[in-house]
Structures are given as structure tokens and as C-alpha cells.
């Protein structure tokens, strides 16, 4: 399984290593493919579908699909941008996202993705679901209103913390994030210092008492759109060659 693989993304030749996903190889080449559930250092999950690209004309999730010699990948096309915008809108209407008073605003990947993809307001009707908040833990809370079911907390807890704090309960529309205890987060061994506590892309799994610490205007995506780090190559430098 050694060897370099050459393929193209939107006509640009990209070289990657066998075993890499399209998303990984693209990032190494400073090409940004929008993604939400994928996170460097965690196994790929494939739930948000925002990373959908066309591989030889067929839709595939770039975070899951391995690169192969000579494949033709389409990424930044109007059609795919529109589809990704639809997916982001679906995530917005499915939950209760009140950005103006959310602690995560400005640091939120979902919100930033909405901006990057040119979403103004969702074209879909809101579901306004009734969802529980788990505030039982002294240092963390889980506001399910904002959860996008990306499993980043689940994977970070298992893969980086060696714990099993989070999991999914329910099927379909009822699917929700849950803690590994009958009485909620407080009953688990979750700690504010866990890697999982940093993993949430939105304002769902949050640390208590640090909300709004950074003023509006100075938050991560207030100055630069999401994906800029990858496009500028700084993400590659940070990752030290891996992803």
C-alpha cells in the first residue's frame, strides 16, 4: 500500500498517499472541501454529508472516500455549493439555533458554514423541536437544541480520552446525543479537560462559565471565513503533514 496517487480536484492535479481520504489529500494540497463532522485526529464519520463531491460524476462523501489513481473530483461547483447549502439549512431548521444569543456565535462551524456557503435564511420551514438540556454536570452542559448529531464528542471521548462519555439514543427524528449515565453528564466521568469538551462544532457541548468571554468581532470566524486556514496552507503546517 505504498506510493503516491495522482488525481484532480476541479482540474487541479493533486498528489496524495494511498489510504488517504479525498478530504485529507485535498487539505494537504490547500484545497478546502467544506466539512462539519470530520475533524482532524478523529476517524471519519460521514454523517453531515456537507463534504459531498462528485467522483467521476458520482456523489461521494470526501471524508470517507479514499483517493484513487486518476479520479476526477469536482468540488467547488455551483451545483455542489447549492446542495451543501441545502444540507446546512436542513441542520438549521432541524434544531433550535438562535445565533444572536448563543455563546458559540462567531466560533460556530455551522454558522460559519452558513456564511461561507451564502445562506441567507433557510428556505425550509423550522421544526422547532422540544429538546432537553443537560446541565447536571458542574463544568459542562449539553444543549441539545443546537446539536447537529456529528458524533465529534462521541469519537473524541472514545478515541482521544479513552472514555465513553457520549453516545446516541433513539432512531431517525428521535435520535439524540446522550450521556453514559441514567442521570446525565454528572453521572459520567466527563471532565472539562477532556478532548471531547473541545470537540463540538456548535454550541451544544459547552463549558460552563466561559460563554461570551471573547467579544463579538474577535471570535474565530468574525475575521476570516471557515476554511481559510486550509486554503492558506497553515492547517497543513499545523498538522505536520498528517491529518
Amino acid at each position: 500500500m505504498s506510493g503516491e496517487i495522482t488525481f484532480t480536484i476541479d482540474g487541479t492535479e493533486v498528489r496524495g498517499q494511498a489510504g488517504q481520504s479525498i478530504l485529507q489529500a485535498a487539505a494537504m494540497a490547500s484545497i478546502y472541501i467544506p466539512h462539519l463532522c470530520a475533524k482532524r485526529g478523529l476517524t471519519a464519520w460521514g454523517s453531515c454529508r456537507v463534504c459531498t463531491v462528485l467522483v467521476n460524476g458520482r456523489p461521494q462523501a470526501a471524508c470517507i472516500q479514499p483517493i484513487a489513481e486518476g479520479i476526477v473530483v469536482e468540488n467547488d461547483t455551483e451545483g455542489l455549493r447549492a446542495m451543501r447549502r441545502e444540507l446546512i439549512e436542513m441542520l438549521f431548521v432541524e434544531g433550535n439555533h438562535f445565533c444572536p444569543f448563543c455563546e458559540k456565535s462567531g466560533n460556530c462551524e455551522l454558522q460559519a458554514m452558513g456564511y461561507r456557503l451564502g445562506m441567507l435564511a433557510p428556505q425550509y420551514p423550522y421544526f422547532f423541536p422540544v429538546r432537553d438540556v443537560d446541565a447536571s454536570h458542574p463544568d459542562l452542559f449539553l444543549d441539545r437544541n443546537r446539536c447537529i448529531l456529528c458524533a465529534r464528542c462521541v469519537r473524541a471521548s472514545q478515541e482521544l480520552d479513552g472514555k465513553n462519555v457520549y453516545g446516541f439514543v433513539g432512531r431517525g427524528a428521535d435520535k439524540h446525543i446522550a450521556a453514559n449515565a441514567a442521570n446525565g453528564l454528572v453521572g459520567t466521568d466527563a471532565a472539562v479537560t477532556d478532548m471531547a469538551s473541545e470537540a463540538c462544532p456548535v454550541g451544544s457541548l459547552m463549558k460552563k462559565r466561559v460563554g461570551y468571554a471573547i467579544p463579538i468581532g474577535q471570535r474565530m470566524y468574525d475575521t476570516k471565513p471557515i476554511g481559510t486556514d486550509i486554503e492558506s496552507g497553515s492547517a497543513r503546517a499545523q498538522a505536520g503533514g498528517g491529518r
Binding site: G46, R49, M90, V93, E94, Y124, F127, G172, A173
Partner: peptide, 20 residues
């Protein structure tokens, strides 16, 4: 809508939008 496993966005949300 009843039988979607709920794993991915388009199936979990999109089918409910279609139905509605």
C-alpha cells in the same frame, strides 16, 4: 421518515421536509 436511522442529514431531515 419513520424508518430512517437518523445518521445522515439529508435522510433524517430531508425526508421530513419532503413529506411535509
Amino acid at each position: 421518515c419513520e424508518e430512517s436511522c437518523g445518521y445522515c442529514t439529508p435522510c433524517r431531515v430531508g425526508n421530513r421536509l419532503l413529506r411535509e
